[in-house]
Design a protein around this nucleic acid. Structure first.
Length: 694
DNA sequence: GTTCTTTCAAGTAT
DNA sequence: CATACTTGAAAGAA
């Protein structure tokens, strides 16, 4: 079932890198009582334009894949899946000190560099056509019918999908674990992003995708991409307190809360004579249920009465269904899972945080706004659970600037260079801050980094439209628009081509990594790994986090000793391959069509952030990371910028440390078959820790 | 660019 | 095996 990813077309590009634009002109004020961090004042041009440079080269695809690596990770069956990330280490303390296991080490074929012949990727592969699964019933819809085509409830299994296997065993489907939960969530979101991309491109003419989340969710349901189907009160295996969700369907698929719409989930318990419902979980909408002040208390409103919106209630609620189940849970002292729905004022997206188990303390009936009876239930959080919703409420207060946090060293270590502040905090020991460096948001290219031949942007007016194959920038991306309308990366690719500052499309959605930070982050002192980076905001899978700023060099032109230090990003390291994109078989696309993902860098690039850098220099390594890097280029005034951009691998809860795979250096003289060891001992604490990195 | 309003969905219990 | 129950998410309007 392994399909070689090597069957890809090699595109040869000329890439020309040029100096960064003039940096931000921040002024250094004496905010720093203990730390001497200066904003970047200016970045001088490093080399002039118009240099003749040697013809440029291009990396062929990575591969072949090492033995033991499943190219369908994390979509493969769990047996073949040795590297499933543990994506929530904050909730998951290290169980043991990890041992290095050489069989996990990929045998790596280094990229070969070839001279280049053409100036642009010549491809324009047509958009993969989407076909609705319900078109095979043979019925011809009248053309002038009510426009909308309904998707029938019964799926018609298409021949090419008959052999699709979810890779999840019957036992794992009934009772999950962290690995399966993670895999299900990633597969769902990859599929949802793809449907969303097709929808954006208006490609789904034959089957309108109104709700990519529902479409992806029902596909996963029907194909067995789900877990914890055995309903039970209490903990759900593999779901951890603090986990964040962006869609109701995500909670259905992992068995945290099965109703796709209703707020109360319950289970019928069969006694000797009677049957009684008990509640298993509730989703608080966050609109009516907030108990001001105490995040451990929730007053929840029952269901029914005509309309969930209490302003439009038409009748009394009855003690049945969910309301009855909550009442029975109160009588039996049965704990209920609580998922807090949150709507941030600044962002329109609603999110859900799993806040653990609550006990129902009392229930009563009160009149709603229109005089109808409504049930109320007071729930109190069970003690001894790690904070989740409480963390979120604390962050809202920090954002309002009210309580001064213990250990806060600087409110903004960038001194205004970033558009959002990045705080610096140490509540672990007495260290006053990281060693001196200059905060810079840009990459500056060294003298050795000369590239020939101009590249061209697009000529779209105002904004580039997904699906517009006349747009040169979209064509460079193979015909697909790389980002959703909300800025989320759809697929991991060997290279992403963004529109540039000099493209005429001013409000273009194809400019993401050049727009600076979007999530509120902080640099903090870790217990055992120096300084680290984490986010106040929850981060949705595929969201842009930051680029790796610093001084870029061509590794082949610098001394080996200079290439390695604590603040170096090196694209030539050996990185554990992984799969992040959707499975074509699930998306009703040709399952044999492989999508290359592993980075293709046109030269051995290293970026040093020792003297100049941004928040990325503080991100630590993990063998089970929650962030991945992705090469991005964009053109400006005939030159091409090459950058390393970081995106969220999965949904990341607030205050969870951000980590990526540092890879392992290949010392000179090693052969492809040699076992590679990193030069640093790893303390990531992951179950799948390789023991070393760097 | 934001915020309110309207629309139309899916799984599960019954 | 239909059908009722539940409310979110996104598109469109203001």
């Amino acid at each position: 079932m392994m399909v070689s990813l090597c069957m890809r077309v090699h595109f040869i590009r000329k890439i020309r890198l040029f100096r960064t634009m003039e940096g931000n002109h921040g002024s250094y004020t004496d905010k720093t009582r203990v730390l001497d961090i200066k904003p970047l004042r200016s970045l001088k041009p490093v080399f002039p334009s118009g240099n003749q440079a040697p013809p440029f080269v291009c990396a062929p695809p990575f591969g072949p894949f090492p033995p033991g690596f499943s190219p369908f990770y994390p979509f493969s069956s769990s047996q073949a899946n040795q590297h499933t990330p543990d994506l929530n280490q904050a909730q998951n303390p290290p169980q043991h000190h990890p041992q290095y296991t050489p069989q996990h080490q990929p045998q790596y074929q280094p990229p070969q560099f070839q001279p280049q012949i053409s100036s642009e990727p010549s491809l324009v592969s047509p958009l993969r056509s989407f076909r609705s699964p319900d078109t095979s019933n043979g019925d011809v819809e009248p053309e002038a019918s009510t426009v909308k085509r309904k998707i029938p409830k019964k799926r018609v299994v298409r021949p090419e999908n008959l052999n699709f296997e979810s890779g999840i065993s019957v036992a794992e489907r009934e009772n999950g674990n962290r690995k399966v939960v993670t895999s299900v969530l990633m597969r769902f979101d990859a599929l949802r992003r793809r449907f969303s991309q097709l929808d954006d491109a208006k490609e789904a003419v034959s089957g309108i995708i109104k709700r990519p989340d529902l479409k992806a969710g029902s596909t996963c349901m029907s194909r067995g991409v789900r877990t914890n189907t055995k309903k039970r009160p209490g903990i759900v295996h593999g779901v951890e307190i603090g986990d964040v969700f962006y869609f109701r369907f995500e909670m259905c698929l992992v068995g945290l809360h099965s109703p796709s719409m209703a707020g109360i989930d319950y289970l019928i318990v069969k006694g000797e004579k009677d049957e009684e419902p008990i509640a298993t979980s509730i989703v608080s909408s966050g609109y009516y249920d907030n108990d001001e002040g105490n995040p451990d208390v929730l007053v929840y409103t029952g269901q029914g009465g005509g309309n969930a919106d209490k302003e439009k209630q038409t009748s009394d609620q009855k003690l049945e269904r969910g309301n009855l189940a909550l009442e029975k849970s109160l009588q039996k002292n049965s704990a209920v899972r609580v998922i807090r729905g949150l709507k941030e004022a600044s962002q329109s997206a609603k999110i859900y945080i799993y806040d653990g188990l609550y006990e129902i303390k009392e229930s009563w009936v009160e009149k709603g706004k229109l005089g109808h009876n409504t049930f109320k239930y007071k729930l109190v959080r069970a003690p001894g659970q790690p904070p989740a919703f409480a963390t979120w409420t604390a962050i809202q207060k920090w954002k309002a600037g009210m309580p001064l946090r213990e250990g806060l060293i600087l409110p903004d270590l960038t001194s205004g260079v970033e558009s959002i502040p990045v705080s610096l905090l140490n509540d672990v020991d007495n260290e006053n801050g990281p060693a001196y460096f200059t905060y810079s948001t840009t990459v500056k290219y060294s003298e050795s980094f000369k590239l020939a031949q101009p590249s061209f942007g697009c000529d779209c007016s105002n904004s580039c439209k997904p699906g517009n194959l006349n747009c040169h920038c979209i064509r460079k991306n193979g015909g697909d628009f790389p980002y959703s309308s909300n800025g989320v990366l759809v697929s991991r690719k060997p290279m992403i081509y963004e529109c540039s500052p000099s493209c005429p499309c001013s409000a273009c959605k194809n400019k993401v990594t050049q727009m600076g930070l979007k999530v509120r982050m902080e640099v903090f002192k870790t217990a055992d790994r120096g300084w680290g980076l984490r986010s106040w905001d929850p981060i949705r899978a595929g969201s842009f986090i930051c680029i790796y700023a610093g001084e870029a060099k061509d590794k082949s032109k610098v001394h080996q000793a200079m290439a390695y230090d604590d603040y170096t990003f090196d694209t030539t390291r050996v990185y554990t391959p992984f799969k992040w994109n959707y499975e074509p078989g699930l998306a009703d696309e040709d399952a044999s069509q492989e999508m290359p993902e592993e980075p293709e860098i046109p030269l051995p690039l290293i970026i040093s952030a020792r003297n100049f850098g941004n928040v990325a220099r503080f991100m630590n390594h993990s063998c089970s990371p929650n962030v991945f890097w992705q090469p991005v280029t964009y053109e400006n005034n005939g030159q091409l910028f090459l950058q390393v951009a970081f995106f969220a691998l999965s949904h990341i809860p607030p205050m969870t440390e951000l980590t990526y795979d540092y890879g392992v250096s290949r010392p000179s003289g090693t052969q492809n078959g040699d076992t590679l060891h990193g030069i640093k001992k790893c303390f990531c604490g992951s179950e799948y820790c390789r023991g070393s990195f760097g």
